[in-house]
Computed example of a mutant assay.
Amino acid sequence: MPPRHEDTPTPARTHPALAGIRGSSLVWFASFGHERGGPVTHAIPARMALMAYPIRLADPQTKRYPDGTYHSPGEAPSLVITVNDPDQLERRQPIGSWNGMTVLRGGHMFALSNNGRPLYVDGPDGGKVLNPDLLDTARPRSDIQFMTVYVGMASHDASALTHRRIAPLGGIGRLVGTMYNSDWRAMMLDANAAG
C-alpha cells in the first residue's frame, strides 16, 4: 500500500500523544511480507509504520496541502507495528517486561504473544533464542500470533533519547509517547478478531 498523507481524521490522530502535532507531518504505510524477504509460510507477516517527518519550511521540496498541513521529504522517525514476522525477534534479546509485554533490546521493542507460546526459549549456551515453534501451524494463516511495536530512528536520535535530549512534543517524543501510552494487547486482540 502506498504511503498516505494525513489529510483526513484517522484513529492515529485521536491518540493524545499525536493530537495537535506541530513541526511534523504524519504519513503512514502498510505492507505484507517478511522484513528480510522470503516466502510466507505458517502465518501472514505484515507491517504498518507511522512516520513523523520533520517539517522544514525553507526546503523548496516542502509541500503545503489544501487543509493547511505541510510535508517535507527526507528521513523520519517511525512507529512500527509488525505481526507474525520472526525476523523482528531473532536479532534481539529479551531484557524484561513492561505492562505484560516483553521488552527487547534494540530500540526498546515491545513484543506480545497471542498464541500462548513463549517468544524465546533457553538456548544451548544458557542465553535466550527465538522459539523455533513460535508459530502455530494449526491456526489460520491470517491469525495474529504475535506482534511487535517499536520506534525506529537514526542512531544519533536514539542516543539523544537515551540522554533525555529529545523534545517531548517533537516527532520522536510523540511517537515514543504513543508507544508507551497505548493498549497494544487490546489493539492486537481487536485486529485479530476483525481479521
Rank of each mutant, 00 (worst) to 15 (best):
S24V: 15
D7Q: 07
R105F: 11
V149Q: 00
S155K: 10
G96Y: 06
H42V: 09
R22Q: 14
H71G: 03
T162Q: 15
L57I: 14
G96T: 06
F110L: 12
G177Y: 04
D67E: 13
L79I: 06
V103M: 12
P3S: 12
S142R: 13
G33P: 06
G33Q: 05
G106A: 05
F146E: 00
T148Y: 01
R4A: 09
P86C: 03
R165T: 03
M101P: 00
P2Q: 14
Y120L: 05
K128M: 14
R117Y: 01
G126S: 11
L112V: 04
M101I: 04
A167M: 07
F146S: 01
R22I: 08
R64L: 15
S155P: 12
N115I: 03
P77C: 09
N115C: 03
M147H: 00
A154N: 14
G195C: 09
M109L: 07
P168H: 12
P16L: 10
H108W: 10
V40I: 15
Y65I: 07
H5T: 10
P118I: 06
M101R: 08
G68M: 12
M1R: 08
M147A: 13
R165L: 09
Y150Q: 08
L57C: 07
S24P: 05
G116Y: 04
A43Y: 00
A158C: 10
V27M: 13
A193H: 13
R164D: 11
R36P: 02
E6V: 03
R165F: 04
V176D: 01
M109N: 02
A30G: 15
R165P: 01
V27H: 04
R141V: 11
E75G: 13
R4M: 11
S31A: 15
V121R: 03
D59K: 09
A191R: 09
P9K: 10
H163D: 10
G116H: 06
P39M: 09
S24F: 05
R174W: 05
F32T: 15
P9D: 14
I172R: 02
M51R: 05
P168C: 04
